[in-house]
């Protein structure tokens, strides 16, 4: 069925605060978002797999900063922001959450099977390349795997620059980003195309308003089918970490002296 092309960018002119001629500076921005268990939730195992059936699913915390930075970029330079996720129907919620705070388009790459990092990055980078995005934002890592591979991996597959663990961004000609290095921070100039992996910085993530939530409810998720390559890394099992044996517990502040002795004589670490 042919999709009706919405006039998605009718608002873009009002959103450009500089009032410059944005016809030639329209940036096509993508933001990668992922649905993960709420970080306050307890993870349980059933059989040899994690059981997420009774866990609340939310947008991965660092992805929230990626969405915010993508929106700030659009507001500074003019353009469109598309939120992209990978998953089944149930992942639509994370896209609607992004829509509610202001992204223009929402796209789900329809796939529920496991993909290793190489297969996953290939699927993402193909869409980024086919649809002509110039800047990609993502969280520095997702709260489930914690691997942080997607941003740099997708950038490499596209032949783009990447900057990771970014805490601040200035939207200049290109981007000026702040990222931690040994002993401090580096302020780095980078030109597009680029993948920016975001950490929590000084920015505040905007909250949806009623209008945004209503719009998100009605918004259509564009579903794209993908055909991933075979994975060379496969999951064998998932399990709980080994429980630590019970430690020693002391009453009263004076016992700190005993603990220091134990750290030296029993633990041998100081």
């Amino acid at each position: 069925m042919a999709q009706i092309k919405k006039s998605a960018d009718t608002n873009v002119h009002q959103l450009n605060p500089t009032g410059s001629a944005i016809g030639d500076t329209m940036v096509k921005i993508a933001v990668l978002v992922k649905q993960v268990p709420d970080t306050n939730s307890k993870i349980q195992i059933s059989g040899d797999r994690v059981d997420l059936s009774s866990v609340k699913m939310v947008m991965s915390p660092f992805d929230e900063f990626a969405v915010e930075n993508a929106l700030l970029h659009k507001e500074a330079a003019g353009g469109t922001v598309t939120a992209i996720t990978v998953g089944g129907n149930s992942a639509d919620k994370v896209l609607k959450d992004a829509k509610a705070i202001g992204v223009d388009e929402i796209v789900r790459l329809d796939c529920t099977e496991y993909m290793d990092s190489n297969a996953f990055q290939k699927v993402i980078s193909e869409v980024i390349s086919q649809d002509g995005y110039e800047v990609v934002y993502c969280g520095k890592s997702s709260a489930d795997t914690g691997s942080g591979s997607t941003g740099p991996g997708v950038a490499e597959k596209l032949g783009w620059a990447s900057v990771s663990n970014v805490t601040d961004i200035e939207f200049t000609d290109g981007l000026t980003v702040t990222a931690p290095v040994e002993g401090g921070d580096a302020i780095i100039n980078v030109s597009t195309p680029v993948v920016v992996s975001c950490d929590k910085g000084s920015i505040k993530v905007r909250k949806p308003n009623v209008k945004g939530i209503m719009m998100a409810k009605r918004a259509q998720v564009e579903v794209k089918s993908v055909s991933p390559n075979t994975s060379s890394v496969t999951i064998v099992s998932q399990s709980m970490p080994a429980e630590k044996p019970a430690g020693k517990k002391f009453e009263g502040g004076q016992s700190a002296e005993t603990v220091v002795q134990l750290l030296r004589n029993e633990a041998n670490i100081i």
Binding site: K244, G247, K249, F250, G252, G253, Q254, E257, V260
Partner: peptide, 26 residues
């Protein structure tokens, strides 16, 4: 405390000076 090898049930006001002294002596 369930994860601590060594637990000290105390206010920090009481425990930290003792900890600090013991460490710097050592």
């Amino acid at each position: 405390f369930q994860y601590a090898d060594y637990g000290i049930v105390s206010t920090w006001e009481e425990a930290l000076p003792v900890l600090g002294n013991a460490l710097s002596n050592m």
